[in-house]
Write a protein that binds this DNA or RNA. Sequence first.
DNA 1: GTTGGGATTG
DNA 2: GAATGTGTGTCTCAATCCCAACTT
DNA 3: TGACACACATTCAA
Length: 554
Amino acid sequence: MLANLDHTFYYLENFQAVLDWVGGRYADLLAGDEQAFIAQFGELPQASRALFVRMVMRKGCVFRASKLVYGEIGETRAAMQALVDVGWVQADPELDIAGLFDLLQKPELALVLAMTPAEKKLPKAEQLGLFSLRHTGSQAFSAWCSDAVSAVDDVAYQVVNKDLCDRLRLLFFGNLYQDWSEFVLSDLGISQYEKVEFSAASRGFGCRADIDAYLALHACREAFHAEQPVPEVLAQLAGLHDLDNAWLTSRRNRLLYQIGEHLEKQKDWALAQQVYAGCTYPGARLRAIRVLEKSEQTQAAYDLLTLAQQAPESEAEHQQMLRIAPRLGRKLGLAKVTKAARTSPTELALCLPFPQEDYVVEYVVRDHLHTDDAPVFYVENALINSLFGLLCWPVIFKAIPGAFFHPFQREPVDLLSADFQSRRADDFAACFAQLESGVYHQTIRQTYAAKSGLQSPFVFWSTLSEDLLEMALACIPAQHLKHSFERILLDIRANRNGFPDLIQFWPQERRYRMIEVKGPGDKLQDNQKRWLDFCARHDMPVAVCYLEWQEAEQ
DNA sequence: GTTGGGATTG
DNA sequence: GAATGTGTGTCTCAATCCCAACTT
DNA sequence: TGACACACATTCAA
Ligand SMILES: [Mn+2]
Ligand SMILES: [Mn+2]
C-alpha cells in the first residue's frame, strides 16, 4: 500500500487516499460541498493540507496555535493562512465559557477570569459550573483573554468543516466508529485485515437518502447520549420512520431499544412502553411485557405475553417468558400451569482454601483440576467460536455483493442480519460437509497457519494456542462441533456467547468436558443455561462446578 | 512531587 | 432462594505527553 | 466503544 518510502506525511497520504476513493466511487451521490472540498483540497500547499488533516484527526475542532507544533509542517500560522483563506478554518473563533475551559489550563483560567483564591482551589468542573452562571454569552477567544494583564498570548483556530470530513469518513468506512488511524494501524501491522477481492464499484451506501438517514440516526444517538430530553429525540426518530434499508432500520431499532432501557430506569413506564411497542429490536417485546407488569397493567401484560408465546422470537424470549407466565397467572388468579422440569446439568462441587492473593475463580478451578494427562484451559467463548471461524473463514470473508467495500473490515456488514446464513447456505453446507468427511482437521490447521493474526469476528488468536487447537481437534468429536456450529449460525448474536469457562481434555482417551465455574454468589445466566441444555440434548459433556471456600483455620 | 486518566502519535 | 435490576471490569496497540487531581 | 461475564443489591413469594 505504501509506494512512497518517505512516511513523513503518512497521515496526509491516507487522507488523500480516502478523498480519491470516495471521489471515485461516490461521484453520483456527493453533495456539492463534498465535491468542492475534494477538488479544492488538492490545490492547497502541502503544509496547509497536512495541518488540516492533523486538526481533523485530533479531538474537538478548536485548537491553540501553541498546541499545533509539527516539525514536518513548520510554521503553523503560515500553513494556517491558506486554510483560513478558503474558509475551512476560522481564526479567533467565538467561544462560550465551556469552550474556553476546554482550551485553557487552570492557571490561565484563573488569570483570564480573575478568580478569587477560593475559586482557584475548586476542581475545574466546579469552576465551570460556577462561571457558566456568570458568563452566558460567547465572545472571541482574544476578547476572553484581553482582560488579563499579560496572561495568555496565543491564537485559537476552529475547523469549521469537520462534519464534512466526518461525512467523507462515513462514506469510506460505512460507519462512524472507525477513524483515520485505521490506516496507520494497518501499515504498522497492529491490526491486519483479510484481503477481500470486492469489486471496484463496491461501496457502503447505494443512495443519498441512506447516507442522510445514517447521519440523522447518528445525530439522534449523540443527542440521546448528551442527555437531551427523550421526547425531543423521539420526535427526531419518528421522522425516520420509512427507511427502506434493512440495516438502517435495525440501527434505528437498536437506538429505540436503548432509549427504552433508559426510560425504564427513569421509571417512565408509559413512554417506555410506547417506545418498546414501536421497536422490533430483539428483546423489545419482552421489555414491553415487563414494563406492563411493573406498571400494574397485569392483564395487558398477560395478553401481550400470550400473543408472544404463540410465536416466540428467540429461545431467550421463550426462556424469560417461562418465568414471567406463572407470576402473571398468579396475579390474575388463573390456574397454575405445571412447568416442565428442566434437566439439570452435571454438578461438580469443590471446596478449596481461600487464595492468599488476588485471584480469579476460573483460574483457581483450572489449576485445581489441571493434570499433565488432563490439561484444562480457560477458554469461555473463544474455543468453539474460533474453530467455527477457522473452518468457515472463506465463507465469512466471501465477497458477496455489498458485504465488503473497504480494506479495513473485520467482518461482512451483514454478519448479524437475519439472512446472513441463507445468502451463503451452499458455502456453509460445504464447510459442514468437511466435518463429515474429516477434511476439517486439515482445513482448520491450514487456515490457522495462513490467517494467523488477521482480524476476525470469531477467531480469538490470543487464546487459541497451537496446543489448544490440536487438543481440541483430537478430543472433540466432529459431530459435537457440527452441532455447536449450527447453533452459532442459527443466531450469531445470541449464540456466540454463553459457553462454559473451562475445557478439559484427555488426549489419551480422545475425550473432553466443558466446565462452567460458579463461585459463591454467582449463578448460571440465561445464555449459559441455553448452551447447557443444548449440550445435554446432544450428549456433549458439560458440568457446572460450584466452588466454595473452606473455613479459615482458627 | 506523584499519579492517573486522557490525548496524541506512528 | 428465585428473579430481577444495576453497576463494574476487562479486554485495549503501545509509548509518550499533558494536565488536573492528589499526597495514594 | 461495546460485548460479555460477574458481583452485588433489592424485591417478592413460599
Ligand atoms: Mn465466565
Ligand atoms: Mn463462570
